[in-house]
Write a protein that binds this DNA or RNA. Structure first.
Length: 426
RNA sequence: GGUGAGGUGGCUGAGUGGUCGAAAGCAGCGCUUUGCUAAAGCGCCGUACCCCAAAAGGGUACCGAGGGUUCGAAUCCCUCCCUCACCGCCA
């Protein structure tokens, strides 16, 4: 969430930054300022009453120990107590109101984020490789996967309903090879520490990484909404150090985790539902960094480069776009999307998003009270970043489409062959 | 699932109703002594929030979390969370 002091001191700046997102939250700023003033007034009054009670209660203690009567003071303090509990309720309520307001206001886009209204205005930052020259016809991943029995949508539906996938045989093996390949790359060459976290997370963690309270309808909840199936390992891994004060010397923290991810995909019925592009459960290798405000933007670039490296080693054409202010996600200050070329999708091919690499600055850290002690010994909020490194189903689709051969087989990229155990699928 | 024991500051660890935000030790910072190192002595040493234009200063809260009892709660009561141990069950 945003720093209330920043909102208080520079409300016009905050509003103008929020306006670049589309303005939905701009009106909330005046409201939160009004509640903030109310809160401080109530707090000050409450503290004064508490101070009075504290002083008088000590007097009672003194009088009693000297054997003097304290009746009169006790009556006064009892009255004070009634006022205090009344004012305390009001104060707590207004504090909670302020907190809820703040939790619902999006992060400020970074000054370098391109201003734009929606996804159509996201600039392409760079691209790598080229679209492969394939024979005719170019098959999509569904046709390829069905023919070579790499996954089985019908039986997955039998188990879990529509929107679920079951990899089979060489397909399951290929997915496993990709996971192992990516984990090895990030741990051995990029210096990330591997975590294998739980899939179920507490409500507080979901608030910490901004899935809640705003996006609850997208999440699978259990135990009366106290436990959730994580929609991304961002949740588990970023919250790993929640409520901690890290030493500046141990930053940046770099984590990689392979986990299943669960999403209701509410409201996206009919959108890219073909095959394995949008499913309720999928696997993902996630990269997370916890760092300092001074270093976070450099770390953002390197994290993005680390994710891109996967596609480069696999020889898959991709492009990187930067999300404009109108398209950037709720908690992010700056985001890049990595989109891999999927030659079989939508007839003539399309780019599929396989990673969003974001710098959240201190937006998440403030929610989860994640801090570090700087050189002067001051506690400051960390900056947190994450990006997929990469999401598996779409990577899988792009890989088999790109690798399709005229004879119907699929060529496996050289770097993946040791993991997959063969040079082709046929 | 059952039973039991616990959760106090960066760490160890006292404290069972009043001057306790909290002894003591360790770690850390500063000063003094010392040829250096080491050691010793003295002092400082939590966080968040509020008031104040700011600094200085003042105040409130915090002893796992939330309620309650009381004039007053780290201390008593209730609920929850977490940790540990043992038993049962189990991949």
């Amino acid at each position: 969430m945003l720093d209330i002091r920043l909102i208080r001191e520079q409300p016009d700046f905050v509003k103008s930054r929020l306006a670049t997102r589309g303005g939905e939250d701009v009106a909330k700023i005046d409201e939160v300022l009004r509640v903030d003033a109310e809160r401080r007034k109530a707090e000050t009054a409450l503290q004064q009453l508490n101070a009075d009670r504290k002083r008088l209660s000590k007097e009672i203690g003194g009088k009693r120990s000297r054997g003097e009567s304290s009746e009169e003071i006790e009556t006064r303090v009892r009255e004070l107590g009634d006022q205090i509990s009344l004012l305390n309720e009001q104060t707590t309520a207004v504090e909670e109101q302020q907190k809820q307001l703040l939790l619902g206001i999006a992060n400020l886009p970074h000054a370098s984020a391109p201003v734009g209204k929606d996804a159509s205005e996201n600039p392409v930052v760079r691209s790598w490789g080229e679209k492969p020259a394939l024979g005719d016809p170019v098959l999509d991943h569904v046709a390829l996967g069905t023919r070579l029995k790499l996954f089985d949508p019908e039986r997955a539906a039998k188990l879990s309903g529509s929107g679920f996938i079951c990899f089979t045989g060489a397909g399951a093996r290929l997915e496993r090879a990709l996971i192992q390949f990516m984990l090895d790359l990030h741990t051995r060459e990029h210096g990330y520490l591997e975590l294998s976290p739980p899939a179920l997370v507490r409500r507080e963690c979901m608030v910490g990484t901004t899935q809640l309270p705003k996006f609850e309808e997208e999440m699978y909840g259990l135990e009366n909404g106290q436990l959730f199936l994580a929609p991304t390992a961002e949740v588990q891994v970023t919250n790993f150090h929640r409520e901690e004060i890290l030493a500046a010397t141990e930053l940046p923290k770099k984590f990689v985790a392979y986990t299943p991810c669960f999403r209701r995909e509410a409201g996206s019925a009919g959108r890219e539902t073909r095959g394995i592009i949008r499913v309720h459960q999928f696997d993902k290798v996630e990269l997370v960094k916890v760092t300092t405000p001074e270093e976070s933007y450099a770390e953002h670039e390197s994290l993005t480069a680390n994710a891109e490296r996967v596609l480069q080693l696999l020889g898959l054409h991709y492009r990187v776009i930067e999300l404009c202010t109108g398209d950037i996600t709720f908690g992010s200050a700056k985001s890049y999307d990595i989109e891999v070329w999927s030659p079989g999708s939508r007839d003539s091919g399309t780019y599929l998003e396989v990673s969003t690499c974001s710098n959240f600055e201190d937006f998440q850290a403030r929610r989860m009270n994640l801090r570090f002690k700087d050189a002067e010994g001051k506690n400051r909020f960390c900056h947190t970043l994450n990006g997929s490194g990469l999401a598996l189903p779409r990577l899988f689709a792009a890989l088999i489409e790109t690798g399709q051969q005229p004879d119907g087989s699929i060529r496996i990229p050289e770097k993946l062959q040791p993991y997959f155990g063969a040079a082709e699928i046929r």
